[in-house]
Nucleic acid binder design. Structure first.
Lengths: 293, 293
DNA sequence: ATAATTAATAACTATGAGTTATCAGATAGA
DNA sequence: TCTATCTGATAACTCATAGTTATTAATTAT
């Protein structure tokens, strides 16, 4: 009568909370249904709260159960994280850094930073992950990521931000477009054109920044194709599907017959920032921060 | 050979990490020493990392062990938190809010807010805890607290801040002091006096704000007594030990023969803020935030 | 009616946590 | 140098309980 809560209970609970079916959950756990029934009941007495409502032909979560589900999800993801870090440390590494980055930043800054990090701290393992801006924010908050390279200026609630670099935007037009750097005056010259832009899901912050360029000129662009890949955007521009606005540095590294017109006179600039969770206890966080500051 | 990590392992590990002595740890756990030895070794194989270095007459943590210790500490505190919340929810409550507050704010705002919260959400339990400013910040980051009422303007990294109220500072002088509201001109009139102030450990942010009042007048005050209790400060002022600077609202609720001179013309004002961790999943957070906004 | 689901119950079995007894090495004292 | 004492590891046990099979009771579908 005085046993303890074990991870086993929580694992079983977690699966049952997903299946909402004792037999199926038991199957998924490779145990028998009565075994599961008993462990779940134990868990309920141990917590002093009923977690499932058992109808005659259905099982569903109570409020308490719903709460516990989100908590155990987090708990297990933390355990996974502990396992990974521990393995690394056991192998003599200091830490494993999970770095996210936005595709358009891969060209320049990130390789350099990571190269310097590796030279200074060879005992820190880095895993890279290309992710949209907002996905990085969520991943950081859920401790699925240690660092994120994003295109945005403000730190979202709960995260810290360090500015890495800043650059002007550039218009991307087809090679034989009548407008070029010399005769470019204003975006209004493109009032009749389609615009090919990064989608809102790439980064809401970034999207709004680009949109503010248009609203400063007092016109609403016709946006036809939204995509998250820089190369795709260039291809679309090349084929005459429209013109694009991208961070100027993107011109490096691609060999597509398109022309870049830097927007040096507008106040909007694209900022690349490093995001991280100040609550994180990853022993490698300090090392990277020290490097970029 | 294919068992799983259980909380038992982590509990044992945690105690051993504190005792660094198998027999003593086993004693504290009410199990035998060989049993502990075996469980720890299991944990080490399961994690694939050695956690303790066993010398002939000593046991100490490896790097991996040190890392795991901080992680399990957090893990167990989360489990405690889950237990508490689950108990509450099981009893039909929505949540339990752990609210911290700084002593000098108890008089006015907090009772009002909590009264309204309770009337609107009787299913939310609130526990109150008087804590210094900085202790609240740490507690919030460690998820030992859901809300903190603090005297500071900026949100510390990782926390969100909502301004609650703002008020001028006031000078507190003995009843028969020559300076009073009518003939008060500048703080420089007190250049020769001692100042009784809240200590730096009450809140660094607050301390610097008060100090900036002095530096704006270009003088360094002679601070003789530092204390964290408003009543103590008033008593010291009454006894002629010096004058004080406190948030003006503190004059309510105390009956001490001291005189308050409101500093309405200086830019510094004392701001009471609500702090919380945006990463917190406490279901009661939204309710209180809604109320104060 | 009958068959097919569901979860709960009862009685079992066997795994492995925890036990006792002992060992091997180290230190310290006489 | 011989003991006495302390350490954690090892070996062989036993017993509590997780997980088993078989069954029931109650529901729904045919």
């Amino acid at each position: 009568m005085s046993y303890q809560i074990e991870l086993r209970h929580l694992t079983y609970f977690n699966v049952l909370a997903e299946e909402l079916h004792f037999r199926k959950a038991a199957e998924r756990l490779f145990i028998s249904q009565p075994g599961l029934t008993r462990q779940i009941r134990q868990l309920e007495t141990l917590f002093g709260a009923s977690l499932f409502e058992r109808g005659k032909r259905f099982v569903k979560l109570t409020d308490a159960g719903r709460f516990l589900k989100t908590e155990t999800d987090i708990l297990f993801s933390q355990l996974d994280y502990i396992r990974v870090q521990l393995k690394k440390i056991g192998e003599g590494k200091r830490a494993a850094l999970r770095v996210g980055f936005i595709g358009s930043a891969a060209q320049t800054v990130i390789p350099d930073i990571l190269y310097r990090l590796n030279r200074k701290h060879p005992d820190i393992d880095v895993s890279l992950n290309e992710l949209p801006n907002d996905a990085q924010v969520t991943a950081l908050l859920e401790n699925k990521l240690d660092f994120g390279f994003v295109r945005q200026q403000q730190a979202p609630a709960g995260l810290s931000l360090q500015k890495i670099s800043e650059e002007p935007f550039a218009l991307v037009v087809p090679d034989k477009h009548p407008v070029h750097t010399k005769n470019f005056r204003s975006l209004r010259q493109f009032e009749k054109e389609n615009f090919v832009l990064f989608g809102r899901d790439y980064s809401n912050d970034y999207y709004q920044l680009v949109m503010s360029i248009f609203s400063d000129c007092n016109f609403i662009p016709r946006v036809h194709y939204q995509t998250v890949n820089a190369l795709t955007i260039f291809k679309l521009v090349e084929k005459g599907m429209g013109v694009a606005i991208v961070p100027a540095s993107l011109k490096k590294g691609y060999d597509i017959p398109v022309r870049f017109i830097e927007l040096n006179r507008i106040p909007q600039r694209s900022q690349l920032s490093l995001l991280w969770n100040p609550a994180s206890r990853n022993p490698g966080i300090g090392a990277l921060l020290e490097l970029v500051r």
